[in-house]
């Protein structure tokens, strides 16, 4: 399949079940809400070493938040609810509780609750106050600028992690420009985050390594430096730079929507912009239950 001169591989992105939650962080103004949100979602690119994958989902107007202040919606993904709870407690404790004027609320309505303010309240050293409002428990912890308000729990839902799109381009400029265009449209999709820096990752990996200690290593099949060397390559000689966009979403549909948005953004720019092919990473389909077939996503009726 080829659209606007760009080839679309007959392949699929293979994704995994994860546990996710959405937090709403508000503050006195947008700037401070962003400071908290950026810090809380920092160093959260991959569960391999960060404990969770997290990102900013979107900005919230004052009219959209529980306390009438500007805010930010964050999504956090982990491989288990337990690990997610640990990450939420650490990140909110260190990056939100500490950040001037912030408050934090659950951003999902239903799901298995994990602690949000429940344990952070102990920072109050006995001065904390519990308040039930409309059936929801909040904790009020006295701090130097007033009160830190945190909802007691946040619901955790089943989610999808590891959706991806590979952009195979003629050179670095073309690859980056295409990736940036895709990221800009994908970030507008609700329910997803692109956890890597700028939404893009250049170190696509495969499972395993020749070194025992490493669970993953570079995916040589997509490394232009190894096109002529590696036993198996997925690249043709005109591909000199590959970028990947990793997508975590609350639902399979969210990941599909984001993938489609990203593909469309690249395809609209046409082959003249330097993109040769679109592809996706998988493990043969045996490891992850979620398969995002690129051709079906971009043209559901055409693909068979």
């Amino acid at each position: 399949m080829e659209i606007n001169g760009i080839a679309i591989d007959d392949t699929f992105a293979e994704a995994f079940p994860m546990k996710a939650t959405r937090l709403v962080v508000t503050a006195h103004n947008e700037t401070w809400a962003m400071h908290a949100a950026v810090a809380a979602t920092g160093f959260a690119t991959s569960v391999i070493a960060c404990g969770c994958e997290a990102g900013i989902e979107r900005h919230l107007d004052a009219a959209e938040t529980p306390d009438g202040r500007p805010g930010v919606a964050l999504l956090m993904f982990s491989m288990s609810g337990k690990e997610l709870a640990k990450q939420v407690e650490r990140r909110v404790g260190q990056c939100v509780l500490t950040c001037p004027t912030t408050a934090v609320y659950a951003g999902l309505a239903d799901g298995e609750p994990i602690a949000l303010g429940r344990n952070l309240r102990f920072f109050g050293d006995g001065w904390q106050i519990s308040k039930m409002i409309g059936g929801v428990r909040y904790w009020r912890v006295p701090v130097m600028d007033g009160e830190f308000v945190a909802q007691e729990t946040t619901p955790v839902v089943k989610a999808v992690g590891g959706g991806n799109l590979l952009i195979l381009a003629r050179d670095t400029d073309a690859a980056l420009a295409a990736a940036e265009a895709a990221v800009a449209t994908m970030r507008a999709v609700p329910g997803v985050i692109l956890p890597f820096p700028g939404g893009v990752v250049r170190s696509g990996s495969k499972v395993g390594s020749r070194y025992k200690a490493l669970p993953a290593s570079t995916n040589e099949a997509f490394c232009p430096a190894l096109t002529g060397l590696a036993a198996k390559t997925s690249l043709t000689p005109e591909v000199r730079c590959v970028m990947e966009i990793v997508i975590d979403g609350l639902t399979e549909a969210d990941v599909t929507t984001a993938t489609r948005a990203g593909m469309q953004a690249i395809l609209e720019r046409g082959a003249a912009a330097g993109v040769v092919r679109l592809s996706a990473g998988n493990y043969g389909g045996k490891l992850g239950p979620f398969h995002f077939h690129l051709r079906r996503i971009i043209a559901p009726e055409a693909a068979s």
């Binding site: 306390d67 600028d145 009160e147 308000v149």
Partner: peptide
């Protein structure tokens, strides 16, 4: 202190 957050809620 500033209690606008909890008061709004």
């Amino acid at each position: 202190h500033d209690l606008r957050v909890i008061w709004t809620l």
